[in-house]
């Protein structure tokens, strides 16, 4: 009962937030709606006993990623951020329609079969479901997934180089003021 309530409430939050992201005209509102969705998902995580992920979700997503969005929006000025437009393909709207309707059909189909168990597999790894999941997660992170874990460092290095390179002032033009952020 409580589970259902939590699920439904969080799901509504998630979906309203998601729709808000897409529909809001102001990017700041989109960002806030995104935070809302992220919270909803964090709640779902908690409901699935993925506490650690719930916390990380909030810290990384809400605390860092969306803040970064807001930062950029403020740096650019909201007007410019709002008017920023790019188009990628002439038939984008049609593609969107196709994509949305197609996938929604799939989702509806999924809802129809949702009562059934989704998968027959069970427990290849450790057993879940205690407060010790954090420890389990750490173990899995440093055994089965240690290589992936090390790879994330590569990703972060790339992201750092990328960020520095991209926002560096062009050499010829007149630099305005000292940039935010420390040394390179």
């Amino acid at each position: 009962m409580v589970d259902t309530l939590v699920f439904v409430a969080a799901a509504v939050i998630c979906l309203v937030g998601a729709l808000g992201v897409v529909l809001a005209r102001n990017p700041v509102h989109s960002a806030l709606m995104l935070v809302m969705t992220l919270f909803g998902i964090a709640v779902q995580f908690v409901a699935q006993e993925a506490h650690f992920l719930a916390a990380v979700q909030v810290i990384v997503y809400a605390g860092a990623i969306v803040v970064l969005f807001l930062f950029v929006i403020m740096l650019l000025g909201v007007d410019r951020a709002q008017n920023l437009e790019m188009s990628f393909l002439p038939v984008q709207k049609w593609a969107a329609l196709l994509f949305a309707s197609g996938s929604l059909a799939v989702v509806v189909a999924l809802i129809v079969v949702v009562g059934e168990p989704v998968t027959g597999v069970h427990a290849m790894g450790g057993t879940l479901g205690g407060t010790d999941d954090v420890r389990l997660l750490a173990r899995s992170l440093f055994s089965d997934y240690v290589y992936a874990f090390e790879l994330t460092s590569l990703l972060l290095v790339i992201a750092v180089i990328g960020a520095v390179v991209l926002v560096r002032k062009p050499k010829q033009t007149n630099p305005v003021a000292a940039e935010d952020g420390g040394g390179t």
Binding site: H51, F52, A54, A55, V58, G63, A64, D133
Partner: peptide, 15 residues
């Protein structure tokens, strides 16, 4: 007392 209490603190300070 969530099992990730400290992370909760950090999360809140992020928010």
């Amino acid at each position: 007392d969530p099992p990730i209490g400290i992370l909760f603190l950090l999360a809140m300070s992020s928010i």
